[in-house]
Design a binder for these strands. Structure first.
Lengths: 185, 185
DNA sequence: CCCGATCATTGATGTGCGTCAACGCGCCGA
DNA sequence: TCGGCGCGTTGACGCACATCAATGATCGGG
C-alpha cells in the first residue's frame, strides 16, 4: 500500500520501477480500479489536501518521492514544468473518458480486448510486438473492467478458443492477428 | 451540436447560459455521456489538435468562444490562469474517477441516486434545497449512467414507490429524506 | 517431499438489466 | 378539432454476466 483514499496528501510520487494500481472503494468493499501506472508516471497529483484515490504496488516498486511543498516551489521556479503537468492531466482525462465509454457501453469481450490493446499500445508505443505481459492479477483486471474474476477468466478462454489470442500462461497474451482483435474491440 | 469528437480543435468555450452534454460514441452508435456542463464550465480543453469528445447543447445555450491561439497567449501572459486551469482539470479528473466507480460497480438504483445527489450538490453547493431539476432527457441520463431509458424510468418509479423521492413531473425530483437517499446511494 | 495458501479455471444456477413491444400523454401544425 | 410525433412509462421475456461452488495449477515453507 502506498496511500489510501482520504489520506492527507504530503508527497507526490514518480514511478522508477514496477507498476501501481489506483482504485476507489465503496463502503461495502466493492472496488473500482481506475488505472494502472507504469514507470515514468506520476501519482498523487489529484489532491485537495487529501488523496482522491488509493494506490498500491502491484509488485516490487521503486518510487521517487517529493514533498508537496517542494513541488510548489518547483512549479513556480520552472514554468515549463507546470505546462508539462497540464499536458499530463489532459492525457489522463482523455484516458478516463475512454474508460467511461468502456465501462458503460462495452460487453465483457469488448472490454477485455480493449484492455489488451490499450496495454499493448501503452507499453510498446512502437507497436512492433504483438504480445502483452499482464503483471496484475485477474482480480485487478476484473475490478478495472467492472467485471468479476470468473467472467474475466471465461472471456480469456473464449477468446483463445476463437483463435483471437494465444495464452501460453495466464500472464502473457499473444495476438496472432492484430487487425482481427482491433475489429472485435 | 457544438463540435464532434475528432473535429480539429480551433476554439475553447465557456458556458454563459444553458447546459451542455459531452459524449463519446462507438462505431455502431452506442453512446456514453461523459459529463454534463453548467454555466461557468469550460469545454474544449482536452485537445491534442482535435477534440477528444463530442459536445451538444441540451437546450438553448450561450457560449463564450476563444481561439486556441488566444488561449496560448493568455496562458503565457498570465501565469495564474494556468494554475487555475490545472486546478480545474484536477477536479474534472476526480469527478471522472468517481464516475468510473459508479459505472463499474454500482447497481441501477445506486447509479440513479448517486446521480441525483451529485446534481443536487453540484447545482446548489449550499445544500439548502432538497430538490433537483433535470434539464436533460431520460436518454441522456441513461447514456450517462450506462443504462437504458427503460431501466432509468423503472428505477425512478421504484424509488418513488419506496418513498425515497417524489416525482411531481419527469424533470423535477424532491427528496423527502436526504439522509435516507445518501444511505441508499 | 508434502502441505497449505493463493490464484486461475470451469461448471451449475440465479438475477439484474436489456430487449422488444405496447400504451399514454403533451405538443404542434394542418 | 384532429392526427402525428417525441418522450416517458409499463409489461413480458431473454440473456449476459454474477453468484455459488468445486477442482486444478503454482509456489513457498516446514
Amino acid at each position: 500500500m502506498i496511500f489510501e483514499e482520504g489520506d492527507p496528501a504530503e508527497y507526490v510520487f514518480n514511478i522508477s520501477h514496477g507498476e501501481v494500481r489506483l482504485y476507489k472503494l465503496l463502503p461495502d468493499g466493492r472496488r473500482q480500479v481506475t488505472g494502472f501506472l507504469i514507470p515514468g508516471d506520476f501519482l498523487g497529483l489529484i489532491t485537495d489536501g487529501a488523496y482522491a484515490y488509493g494506490a498500491e504496488a502491484i509488485g516490487p516498486v521503486e518510487l521517487c518521492c517529493m514533498r508537496l511543498s517542494g513541488l510548489e516551489r518547483l512549479l513556480s521556479d520552472m514554468p515549463p514544468v507546470r505546462e508539462r503537468l497540464l499536458d499530463m492531466s489532459r492525457d489522463e482525462l482523455a484516458a478516463a473518458q475512454e474508460q467511461m465509454l468502456l465501462l458503460g457501453r462495452k460487453s465483457a469481450r469488448e472490454k477485455i480486448l480493449s484492455f489488451l490493446l490499450y496495454r499493448q499500445r501503452h507499453l510498446d508505443p512502437t507497436g512492433r510486438d504483438a504480445s502483452v505481459d499482464l503483471t496484475m492479477s485477474r482480480t485487478d483486471i476484473a475490478d478495472y473492467l467492472g467485471l468479476t474474476i470468473e467472467t474475466v477468466s471465461r472471456t480469456f478462454t473464449a477468446l483463445r478458443d476463437d483463435g483471437l489470442i494465444e495464452l501460453p500462461n495466464p500472464h502473457h497474451v499473444i495476438f496472432p492477428d492484430m487487425d482481427a482483435v482491433r475489429d472485435a474491440a
